[in-house]
Design a binder for these strands. Structure first.
Lengths: 128, 128
DNA sequence: CCTTGACCTTCCCATGATGGGAGGCTTTAT
DNA sequence: ATAAAGCCTCCCATCATGGGAAGGTCAAGG
């Protein structure tokens, strides 16, 4: 199949399929005589795997590794689990930081009347 | 003062000070005869304001608007509050999405033994 | 007066994931 | 035969940030 069909069936855009090939997350696709990328059912599975990983927030570097583990019969589930746990830890840290900001923002917002006057505690606190 | 001192006193790097000038978040600085950017105490206050806003996750476009409101005596606190609330709403949505991912990741990870064997529910679920 | 080192300048490149769009070739259907 | 749809590569943009090179400026000390 061509790239358009692969895109539809995997949920990955054509742009991204080409990009992932370029940055070597995915091996280079074979080409037809006219230079069109040619894909198989196996490629659909790979790009679906990639998409699900992406939806879980894994970076492309991590996904490259995940795919490599997936394709490697000598992997251990420990390797996979550690990768996922590392990602989870990083995610937790990001969430905590954002929750801190959320808390501070809420405090700021609550301190402001939000009326027609110019006096504004939000601006005052940003100016310190 | 020169850009180095402003950077130290505001907590914004020299690189970023130049960049914010370039993208017009901040008006162009005056120059000395040799072409050096020259700043005043007022600029320190502006860049400290910018830094605090940045630390609260506001985008540069939003900060540009915040600074404009801050400098405008005819602003209303309602304008400022609305800007902050919009940012808070977007932040909440991001946090929720990340928490969803966190939940899914945790489930995946719990399903995996993480031992020496190759069988791995994480990879299986990513492959569907 | 000259050298040295710290400081400043602009310009280019890179990140990470994604997309837009132009200009041109190929395939398919009418 | 022609038009439409699909594909190709290449360049540019996003957003905030940083690295680094090549070169000009300034202050202090010999």
């Amino acid at each position: 199949m061509n790239i358009g069909e692969l895109a539809k069936r995997s949920g990955v855009t054509e742009k991204m399929i080409r990009h992932y090939e370029e940055i070597a997350v995915i091996p280079k696709a074979k080409r037809s005589s006219a230079g069109y990328r040619v894909y198989t059912e196996n490629d659909v599975a790979i790009f679906q795997f990639l998409k699900r990983s992406r939806d879980l927030g894994f970076s492309m570097a991590e996904i490259k590794e995940l795919i490599s583990l997936w394709r490697n019969p000598r992997r251990t589930s420990e390797q996979v689990k550690k990768l996922a746990q590392k990602h989870l830890e990083e995610l937790k840290i990001k969430i905590e930081k954002m929750q801190m900001i959320e808390k501070n923002l809420k405090t700021l917002i609550h301190s402001c009347h939000g009326d027609h006057r110019s006096e504004c505690p939000i601006l005052e606190k940003l100016a310190h």
